[in-house]
Design a protein around this nucleic acid. Structure first.
Length: 576
DNA sequence: TGTGGCGCGC
């Protein structure tokens, strides 16, 4: 009775709720052989991927007592199609743990997922199983392997599997071609392209993309014009090519000229505008796009976060959650960066618990954004713990940690990390230097800071105005006012008020009237609206007994209105 | 074919 009812329902497209009820009935009545049908029905009825569907699929799979290869394989493909590659790989692992033999279908889907997330060891172990189960001569599996090794950059393996294939299809040809393009070997790519028995739009796109990416935009454009047919990807290859060689205006012209723009076209331009600091243009494009997917949101949230529009980043992140769009590691890395910029530990911690709840993979990017958040909000121990858990400590991770130690007064730890980084042969960048200078500054290690500053050129770095400001601040506080003044005079770039302000502060601390007057004059020239500099100079006059001058300046301050903002902290209170 | 983490202290 129930079985026939289920069969009727299964023939139709069901809502998730109907599916839930049927599953309950199946379990109550012990009709386990219907479960497999049900799982496939869920997959078919879930037309889109949302937090809700993914959650429900997991729930059903966990309760399925009679798991079969068919259901699992179609679920793996479902995940792959909706870009949930980690889920796909995890499910393949589960299939094995259940003692089931994979099908060729499951193997090729899982390999595709490994290729997309560059999960090297996962793909290699699936390769081993290909031998074990005797799938070596299955074209789909061989092609998936060629694609996997091409995508992870192992062209020797990709080529040898490709050469062994008795029967090659156009996908296998395109996979090796794409691999050579990706590794930048345009000579090999061109020879594969010339050798191909037939070419499709994907083959042409790879070549256009390859030449564009290598900066040979003329050759890319020549091929683009020669193409027998063009897809959106052909246009996008040209757009990203122009972006890569810094010709954003030309990229925009191609974008405007293309007929059917897709989300990728928008993402390429949004991230290009983001990198050039043009948030308004990125916003304008984002607003024009009607059907926005997760990745478009990621690009726009990242754009806000990278350009210090932290509030806007979090607003958009919230909007994304309200629309039931699943955030991934990339979304969260940007959102946490925005929290860190605002000192919003509360929301940042909420995101961290969200990561643990939803089982999102904590990768090094995400961990680094959390390190930065915790370090800035005073939880340096938490930051340390995350830092030690990183799979690979890179420049950005070291820099975040060095800065964190620096602002928390742990200068010695910062210096230790800096040495460790140098030993690992990771070259510092401008940001790292800011961090280490801040650390030195906090414990008044003037000589070391100065030496570090002087040795900037060793790393091929040019000191920024801000670096000068830190060093001038350091020298001035230590009373080395003449040296500080000399350093400013030697600058090849224009000092800003922050640089002269640092000297002025030092002069006020050490009662140096002569240099104080020079510094104050410069500050007032550069920032006439700020009254703080006048107050500092007034203090110097007062300390030198020049009461009339001090009084004159104080009156000036009163007339201007007191612009100095009261001191405040961006940090949320941290409960001990 | 696309998206992510690090910038003094006033």
């Amino acid at each position: 009775m129930l079985a026939s009812k289920v069969a009727i329902l299964l023939a139709k497209r069901m809502t998730i709720n109907q599916t839930k009820q049927i599953h309950a009935a199946i379990l109550v009545n012990g009709l386990l052989d219907l479960e497999s049908l049900l799982v496939q029905q869920i997959i078919n009825s879930a037309s889109s991927y949302s937090y809700y569907t993914s959650h429900y699929i997991k729930l059903v799979l966990n309760h399925v007592q009679n798991l079969d290869v068919f259901s699992v394989a179609s679920t793996i493909r479902f995940y792959s199609r909706h870009c949930q590659f980690r889920e796909a790989v995890n499910l393949y692992g589960k299939l094995q743990r259940c003692g089931l033999s994979p099908s060729t279908f499951a193997v090729s889907s899982a390999l595709k997922a490994c290729a997309r997330i560059l999960y090297r060891s996962g793909g290699i172990s699936i390769h081993a199983q290909v031998y074990k189960y005797g799938f070596c001569n299955v074209v789909y599996v061989q092609t998936a392997l060629v694609d996997f090794y091409s995508k992870v950059g192992n062209m020797d393996f990709a080529r040898s599997i490709f050469n062994e294939m008795v029967e090659k299809n156009i996908v296998s040809w395109n996979s090796v071609l794409g691999g050579y393009v990706k590794s930048g070997d345009l000579t090999m790519a061109q020879s594969v392209f010339d050798e191909m028995p037939e070419k499709d739009v994907i083959s042409w796109n790879s070549m256009v993309y390859g030449y564009a990416r290598m900066g040979n935009i003329e050759r890319a454009y020549a091929l683009f014009r020669q193409m027998p047919e063009r897809s959106s990807a052909s246009w996008n290859a040209m757009i990203s090519g122009y972006v890569d060689c810094g010709k954003i205006e030309l990229a925009r012209s191609f974008f405007e000229a293309m007929g059917q723009k897709n989300n990728v076209s928008y993402i390429i331009l949004i991230s290009a505008y983001s990198k050039s600091g043009d948030v308004e243009s990125a916003e304008e494009l984002f607003g024009k796009l009607h059907k926005k997917d997760q990745l478009v949101y990621n690009a726009m949230i990242a754009c806000y976060a990278q350009n210090s529009w932290a509030k806007e980043a979090l607003q958009l992140f919230n909007a994304m959650l309200r629309l039931d769009l699943q955030p991934d590691e990339m979304t969260l890395a940007s959102a946490i960066s925005a929290c860190s910029q605002l000192g919003d530990l509360k929301f940042g911690s909420w995101i961290e618990s969200f990561i643990h709840e939803t089982g999102i993979q904590m990768d090094d990017f995400l961990a680094t954004s959390l390190i930065d958040l915790y370090a800035k909000c005073g939880s340096i121990d938490k930051a340390h713990k995350l830092f030690h858990g990183l799979k690979k400590k890179d420049l950005v991770a070291y820099t975040a940690m060095i800065l964190g130690c620096g602002i928390n007064g742990r200068a010695k730890d910062a210096i230790k990390l800096f040495d460790e980084m140098m030993n690992a042969e990771i070259n510092p960048n401008i940001v790292t230097i800011t961090g280490i200078l801040t650390a030195y500054s906090h414990i008044g290690m003037v000589e070391e800071a100065y030496r570090c500053f002087i040795s900037l050129q060793k790393y091929g770095l040019a000191p920024s105005v801000d670096h000068y400001a830190i060093v001038v601040d350091l020298l001035s506080r230590a009373g080395r006012l003449e040296e500080a003044h000399g350093l400013i005079k030697s600058m090849s770039i224009q000092p800003h008020a922050g640089v002269w302000g640092a000297l002025l502060l030092g002069c006020s601390l050490h009662n140096n009237l002569e240099l104080g007057e020079i510094a104050a004059t410069r500050c007032i020239e550069l920032e006439p609206d700020s009254s703080g500099y006048l107050s500092l100079l007034a203090n110097i006059y007062a300390s030198s007994g020049r009461w009339d001058d001090a009084e004159r300046l104080r009156k000036g301050v009163e007339e201007k209105g007191y612009n100095k903002l009261p001191g405040c902290s961006w940090m949320e209170e941290v409960k001990a």
